[in-house]
Simulated scan of single mutants.
Amino acid sequence: MSDDAIKLPVDVSCILHLLPHRYPFLLVDRVVELEPNQRIRAYKNVTFNEPFFQGHFPGRPVMPGVLVVEAMAQAGGLLTQLSQPRDKISEGKLFYLVKVDNARFNRMVVPGDKLEFEVRVKRLIRNMALYDCTASVDGQVVASAEILCAEGKE
C-alpha cells in the first residue's frame, strides 16, 4: 500500500470531511472496505433515537425506504470521494441524486439493525456515476437499486 492509500475503517469524523450531509441526514457511520473506482462496503447503525422514527410510525418504528436509498447514494458519494487521490479530494463536494431505477424493498429496517451497504460502480459518465447498490441486514438484502449521481457545479 502506498502512503496515499486510505486507511480503513473510515470513521464518521473523516466522513464528515467527505460528505456535506449533517445530522439528521448523514446516513453512513463507517466505511469498512474500499476498492477505489470499483466498490465500497459501509454501514449505518440504526437506533431508536433516529428522528424519523417519531412519525414513521409511532409504536411501530420503520426506517423510510427513501432514506435507505439516500444512504446507498451517500455510500456511492463516499466511493467516488475516496477513489480520488488525496490531493484531489474536495471537502463537502456536492453530488446530487439524479435517478433511481429498479428500487426494491425486501423487508423493513427497524431500530437495532446494522444496515450494510455494498455499492459498485457500474459506469462513469463525465461528471456522473451510475452505482449498483444493495443494503443488507444480517446478510439478508433489505433493499437494492441502481442509482445515478451527478457532481454539482461549484
Score class of each variant (00 low, 15 high):
D3C: 12
A5E: 12
I6V: 13
L8P: 09
P9Q: 09
V12A: 13
L16V: 15
L18P: 09
L19M: 08
Y23G: 07
P24V: 05
P24R: 04
P24F: 01
L26R: 07
V28P: 06
P36V: 10
N37T: 07
R39A: 15
I40D: 06
R41V: 14
Y43G: 05
K44T: 01
N45S: 13
T47R: 06
N49G: 15
F52N: 05
F52S: 04
Q54E: 14
H56P: 08
H56C: 09
F57H: 09
G59A: 03
P61C: 03
M63H: 11
G65H: 03
V68I: 15
V68N: 05
Q74M: 02
Q74T: 02
A75T: 03
G76A: 02
G77R: 03
L79I: 10
Q81W: 01
Q84W: 12
K88M: 14
S90K: 15
E91D: 13
E91K: 15
L94D: 00
L94S: 06
Y96G: 05
Y96S: 04
K99Y: 00
N102I: 08
M108D: 00
V119C: 02
R120C: 12
R120L: 12
R120S: 11
R123L: 09
R123E: 00
L124G: 07
R126S: 12
N127I: 14
A129S: 09
Y131P: 03
T134L: 10
A135G: 03
D138H: 07
G139C: 04
V141P: 06
I147R: 00
L148P: 08
A150L: 12
A150E: 13
A150S: 14
A150C: 12
E151N: 09
G152M: 08
